[in-house]
């Protein structure tokens, strides 16, 4: 199922959080060879994980991580504005209607529908909260992954060539694509909505009462 969790809610899902940060280490550190920090727990975390971002996570049946991505509003601190403004001719993107999406990660054994499910979730966020665009930084190896899941971004700026290409991309909301993405994910729009409400609507808190 899809879960939408802020950073301070991850502690209620220890298995999910642990496997997500481990899968991120496997993808970004081991496979993609990015210059990221892996801590003594085997977790890949960066400074933006400390800003209480919103994670969208596909949870496997046994409660572990199948895939995820991380969102922050561009009105606050973001990776693209902190480190990649030179790719944008010095322009800082700043709008309550543009959220940054980073750390798109899939478990190596994830079913192929997980990527589509995450796309569906991105669409739910846009629809419910009036977000118009997601912005994100990606490298050459992610281009293929985005193409594979049918979600290639519009390139706002890039540097480097071939394998060393790094780009800032923009994703918009396409209401017409919702049905087909839902179909590919094998999730009915109704079920997706139910999961969304479960995360953002009232859900009894089990562990939060002191």
């Amino acid at each position: 199922m899809l879960r939408y969790l802020y950073g301070d809610q991850l502690c209620n899902y220890p298995k999910l959080a642990d496997s997500m940060f481990r899968d991120r280490a496997a993808q970004f550190h081991e496979r993609l060879g990015w210059d990221v920090t892996v801590d003594d727990r085997g977790w890949e975390r960066d400074a933006y994980d400390d800003l209480n971002p919103l994670y969208v996570i596909w949870e496997n049946h046994e409660g572990s991580h199948g895939g995820s991505m991380r969102f922050l509003p561009t009105t606050g601190q973001t990776m693209v504005n902190d480190h990649f403004v030179d790719l944008m001719d010095g322009v800082e993107l700043q709008s309550p209607f543009i959220w940054e999406c980073t750390r798109f990660c899939l478990n190596p054994n994830a079913e192929s529908r997980v990527a589509a499910a995450l796309m569906l979730a991105g669409g739910e966020l846009m629809r419910a909260f009036d977000v118009r665009h997601f912005v994100g930084v990606f490298d050459a190896r992610m281009v293929r992954i985005y193409r594979m899941i049918g979600s290639s971004p519009e390139i706002l700026g890039q540097t480097g060539k071939g394998r060393d290409m790094i780009a800032v991309g923009l994703w918009g909301y396409d209401d017409k694509a919702r049905e087909s993405v839902a179909h590919r994910a094998g999730i009915s729009p109704e079920l997706s909505e139910k999961w969304f409400l479960k995360s953002f609507g009232f859900e009894p808190r089990l562990q939060l009462v002191a």
């Binding site: 919103l54 606050g76 419910a128 859900e203 808190r205």
Partner: peptide
């Protein structure tokens, strides 16, 4: 607190 999505009070836990 420390959220960034609009919240309808109906969706909060008033139980």
């Amino acid at each position: 607190y420390q959220r960034f999505h609009p919240v309808n009070w109906k969706r909060l836990d008033w139980s």
